[in-house]
Amino acid sequence: MITDSAEPEYSPLLKTAAVSKSFGGLKALSDISFEVPKGIVQGLIGPNGAGKTTLFNVITGAYLPDSGSISFLGKEIRGKKLHQIVKMGIARTFQNVELFESMTVIENVMVGCHVRTRSGFWGAVSRIPKVLREEKMIRDRAEELLAFVGLEKESGKKSSDLPFGWQRLLEIARALASDPLLLLLDEPAAGLNAVETRQLGELLGKIRDLGITLVLVEHDMSLTMKISDNILVLDRGCILARGTPREIQSDEAVMSAYLGKSK
């Protein structure tokens, strides 16, 4: 696994410093600086178009920021390739669930193990014992993760045949298969009913208990407020507020910009 004994203990897991990103004339992110300490659940909220997904894309390397730096475990990751970043320990899920639809449920999770495994073409063709052992390890790990999210009975089904709520769980299992230290979840509760949302909340708690740090973009306020240790509020590409859920709920600026004036 990833160890870095030289790092002082107080260093944050993830840190962005003055990250900006524009699309043409639109400033999607301007000067975003924030830190995510290890082991917490970081909520990320804001109205549509606030730049939450863009921030995810920048952190995971899908977009290159125009300026600023992003460090993970104290190392600069800006400009690194996506697969390198995943290997360092950052995984993500998508707002609109991106599964491998022609593949089975378990295969989806098995693909998730990609960065922690090695065998390639010659291994596939020769099927030497080392490769078979790795293949078994991948399958075992995938089964374990399916059980973890509660989908162990669905393993042989085609992933696109799962109901939507389960597809979300599968996507989380797939992300966990890369053994991440940091998991970015883009609106995991979108499209889920009340029961599913409650189960999701429990699952996220279990993931945190594994020591995995979570960054959560979510519109479901009760879920976000309940599970987050810290919340960052974005609005039109800028940081509007940050603090504990309690602080955010009583923040004037957030009230007017995002939650709407209740009084």
Binding site: L82, I85, V111, H114, G123, E134, A175
Partner: peptide, 24 residues
């Protein structure tokens, strides 16, 4: 039926997701 084959099929289904799980 191998790690490589799964990764290939993953690219076919969704290149975006394939990259997100760390496939080069």
């Amino acid at each position: 039926q191998s790690r490589m084959g799964r990764a290939l099929r993953a690219i076919h289904d969704s290149e975006k997701a394939a990259m997100a799980v760390g496939i080069n």
